[in-house]
Amino acid sequence: MSIKTPKLTVVGAGPGDPDLITLKAIKALESADVVLYDALINETLLAYAPNAEKIFVGKRKGCYAYQQEQINELIVSRAKSQGHVVRLKGGDPFIFGRGAEEIDYVQEFGVETNMVPGISSSLAVPAYQGIPLTKRGSSESFWVITGTTKSHKLSQDVRLAAKSNATVVILMGMSKLNEIVSIFAAENKQEVPVAVIQNGTTDNEKFGFGSVQTIEQVVLEKELSSPAIIVIGDVVQQRAKLASIQKEVQKEFVN
């Protein structure tokens, strides 16, 4: 029996819709001996690794199956004992996914490392709601910011972003929504459109549209919660126009 090379492949699973995984990611799963997967991945993707050991290492609202240090050690131990470990993460692992941290750690133990990018939820979730993050005449750039930093505080970059005309996408920011809208309101942006999209690209997706001034009330009325993405900017209003056009088309078909 040949000894397998200890190997880690960090794989982006995409934002939730299982069809948004890449072919390269599927190939990595098919060759996996062990899959360590997070809470936000679509578990139907595990079928691509029928013969692999599958270990849930995710976290939900502060409830950790494993601490990050334990995950790092588990990757090394499984790679040494079983061969190819696939670390399956939601979205893109290099966008607030700690994928680079895991690669840096295991390289110290002589484990071969690879990375398969995923479609980031920061791009795909707004797109599924028809929201273009950039649009000629409305937005020339966009920020993608974490709502919760390592110190569990709101990123200071939100204050900088609020001063710009860019589209602002905030991940993991629902617990800080009041603080976020206060920052934008302080820049006289009460009327700027806002979207909150929960479980984006999945079958149980929920969403709410409003403005900096109204979005907190919308979130309450629609009972929106994490995991959700907050999109702030004029491009959100572009989506509203698109939706009304689609409704008119649907009416024509019904009639």
Rank of each mutant, 00 (worst) to 15 (best):
V254K: 13
L242R: 14
G99Y: 00
R78G: 03
L46K: 05
P117F: 00
L220W: 06
V144M: 04
V235D: 05
I55T: 02
G110A: 05
V169Q: 07
T149K: 06
L40N: 09
D38G: 02
V11L: 11
S211Y: 06
V57I: 13
T22N: 03
I26S: 08
N165V: 02
I145H: 07
L29Y: 08
S121P: 00
Q82M: 15
V158E: 02
L36H: 07
V57E: 01
N114D: 08
E179C: 08
V254E: 14
V85W: 08
M172V: 09
T149W: 04
A185G: 13
A166K: 01
V86G: 08
M172A: 08
T167G: 10
I26P: 11
I26G: 10
L46C: 03
E221I: 05
I197S: 04
T113S: 14
H152Y: 11
Q70Y: 01
I183C: 07
E179Y: 07
Q237Y: 14
V235Y: 04
I71V: 12
R60H: 10
A39E: 08
G200W: 11
I131K: 09
A52K: 01
K222M: 05
N178D: 11
V111Q: 10
Q238H: 15
T9G: 00
L171P: 12
A32P: 13
K176L: 00
Y128A: 14
L36E: 06
N188I: 07
H84S: 01
V196R: 05
T134I: 06
V76K: 10
S211L: 06
T9H: 00
K206A: 09
L154V: 03
V249S: 09
L220C: 08
L154T: 00
I183S: 08
M1L: 11
K153M: 14
F56L: 02
T134A: 06
R78H: 15
L74R: 13
G99A: 01
R239S: 14
T134W: 04
V192L: 15
H84D: 02
L242T: 14
V85T: 10
P15I: 13
V181M: 13
I41Y: 02
K222P: 06
L154K: 01
S226P: 12
L220F: 13
P18D: 04
T146I: 08
E108D: 12
Q217L: 06
Q190F: 14
A243S: 15
G208Q: 01
D92Y: 00
I229H: 00
I119M: 10
V35E: 08
E30P: 03
N178C: 04
L160Q: 14
Q156F: 12
K89H: 01
V111D: 08
D157C: 03
F56C: 03
G208L: 01
V111E: 11
T202H: 07
Y128R: 15
S122I: 09
R60E: 12
F142M: 09
S151L: 11
L224Q: 06
A13S: 07
